[in-house]
Amino acid sequence: MPSTHMKLKILLPFKVFAEKVDVLRIVAESRNGSFGLLPQRLDCVAALAPGILIYETATEGEVCVAVDEGVLVKTGSEVLISVRNAIGGTDLGELHKAVEQEFLNLDEQERSVRSVLAKLEGGFITRFAAMHHE
């Protein structure tokens, strides 16, 4: 008999953020838009964009979690979500602000840091090559 519930585990790099066993449905966001998961859906893998993850359980009802980018993997009745950061809360407006302030700004900071590192690496390689030719 097919399962009517899913097991959800939200993983962060340093801990398990949430683990639920009676999940009825999940709604997540990818770069192409939102998508939903039900227990009988075929197995899948999806890259998640920063946004609001919604899951529903019989006991808690609908729960919203702000998540950073990551990966969702559904195999059978198990759904694993691995993200860089997650923030739980009840106010949807506050969660949207958290996504904008925390996760999207972090991407800009990472791009800036990567640009500086690329310049440093380029300078190092140039000086190393010049030293090698001497």
Rank of each mutant, 00 (worst) to 15 (best):
L95G: 00
Q40M: 11
A49R: 09
K9E: 04
A66N: 02
L42A: 15
D68F: 04
E29Y: 09
K15N: 07
A98D: 06
T75C: 12
F103Q: 01
R31T: 15
L80G: 05
A98T: 08
L72C: 03
M1K: 14
R31A: 13
V27E: 05
K15A: 09
N32V: 11
V67L: 04
G88L: 05
E69L: 12
L48Q: 02
L92K: 09
K74S: 01
S30M: 03
F17H: 01
A66W: 01
A118K: 12
E60T: 02
G70H: 00
V73Q: 06
K20N: 06
R25E: 11
L95N: 00
V116D: 13
P39Q: 04
S77H: 10
R25W: 12
L48M: 06
A28K: 00
R111F: 07
V65S: 02
N85D: 12
E29H: 13
G88A: 06
E102Y: 08
L53P: 00
A58D: 13
A98P: 04
A86E: 01
A47G: 10
D22I: 04
D43N: 14
I87E: 04
H5N: 14
I125E: 12
I81W: 00
R41K: 14
E78S: 13
K9S: 05
M6E: 01
T4F: 10
C44G: 06
H132S: 11
L42V: 11
G93M: 14
D43A: 10
R127M: 13
L53C: 02
L42F: 14
K20R: 09
A49M: 09
S34Y: 10
I81C: 00
G89V: 08
L24V: 11
L38S: 07
T90P: 05
K74P: 01
L120H: 15
F124Y: 15
A46H: 02
L53I: 02
A47F: 11
G123I: 15
E69T: 13
G61Y: 01
F103D: 01
E69A: 15
E19T: 03
E121K: 14
L117W: 10
L12K: 02
